[in-house]
C-alpha cells in the first residue's frame, strides 16, 4: 500500500502537470464555445444546472483533483478495510479502532471517544471536527488504493455514494466541515497537495463539464 502510494504520487504529479495544460486549453475552448465553464469558479458554490458536457475538461479536472482524495488526510478515513488509518504513512489506527455499524466506531471506541469538535493543541493530539466519522459499512467510499477512474465512478454512483446527486457531492466537498478539516488538520499534519479552494473549483469544473470519469488505461 505504501509503495503503491509513492508510485501513484509520482504518476499523479505528472498527470497534474498534463491536466493543467489541458485545463488551460479547456478554458480557451470554453470561451470560444461561449459556455460558462470557468477554471476560477468560486469555491463553495455548487455547480449550476447549466452544465455543458465536455468530457475532456471534466476528466482533466477530476485528474487534477484526484490526489486530494488519496492524500493521507482524506484517505485515512476512507480505508479499504474496516479500520481507519493514521499518519502520513497511513498506518492502521493505533488503538485498533473499527468502522462500526454506522461508521462512528464501535463500543467504547467510537470516534467521539477521543475526537472532539475541534483540533486539540499540541503535536499528535487527537484531531477534531464536527461529526468525525468514517463512511458507514454499507457505503464505504474507499479512497485507499483507488485510481482516479475508480474514485470518480465510485463518487458518482448513487448506490455507493449514499444516493447523492452530483450537485450534492460538490456541495459536500465544498462545505462539509469534516472535508474542510483536511486543510486545517492540527499541529504537525500535512495538508493535501491542492488548496481547498482549488480542489473545490476543480470538482466544480468536473461537475459542470458533465462529470465524466478518467478513462485512459493508466487512470481507469
Amino acid at each position: 500500500m505504501h509503495i503503491r502510494w509513492n508510485w501513484k504520487r509520482k504518476t499523479i504529479a505528472a498527470l497534474l502537470l498534463g491536466a493543467a495544460s489541458l485545463w488551460a486549453g479547456t478554458g480557451r475552448l470554453s470561451t470560444r464555445g461561449g459556455s460558462r465553464v470557468r477554471a476560477d469558479y468560486p469555491a463553495g458554490r455548487p455547480a449550476t444546472v447549466r452544465t455543458v458536457s465536455d468530457d475532456a475538461a471534466a476528466r482533466a479536472a477530476f485528474l487534477a483533483a484526484a490526489p486530494v482524495f488519496t492524500h493521507p488526510r482524506c484517505q485515512n478515513c476512507h480505508p479499504a478495510g474496516d479500520a481507519p488509518l493514521q499518519g502520513d504513512d497511513s498506518h492502521p489506527h493505533a488503538q485498533s479502532v473499527k468502522r462500526g455499524p454506522d461508521g462512528r466506531g464501535k463500543y467504547g471506541m467510537k470516534c467521539s471517544a477521543c475526537h472532539q469538535l475541534t483540533n486539540l493543541p499540541g503535536a499528535n493530539m487527537p484531531p477534531g471536527a464536527p461529526n468525525w466519522h468514517l463512511p458507514p459499512p454499507n457505503m464505504r467510499m474507499v479512497f485507499v488504493g483507488r485510481t482516479p477512474g475508480e474514485l470518480c465512478r465510485q463518487l458518482k454512483d448513487p448506490s455507493q455514494n449514499g444516493g447523492k446527486t452530483i450537485h450534492q457531492i460538490i456541495e459536500h466537498v465544498a462545505s462539509d466541515k469534516l472535508v474542510l478539516w483536511g486543510w486545517n488538520p492540527g499541529e504537525g499534519r500535512t495538508t493535501p497537495p491542492l488548496g481547498h479552494t482549488e480542489f473545490a473549483g476543480l470538482m466544480n469544473q468536473w461537475a459542470s463539464n458533465g462529470a465524466a470519469c478518467p478513462e485512459t488505461a493508466e487512470n481507469r
Partner: peptide
C-alpha cells in the same frame, strides 16, 4: 452512556 477519554475532552 458513551465512553470518552476525559483527558482530551473539554
Amino acid at each position: 452512556g458513551e465512553a470518552v477519554r476525559s483527558c482530551v475532552t473539554p
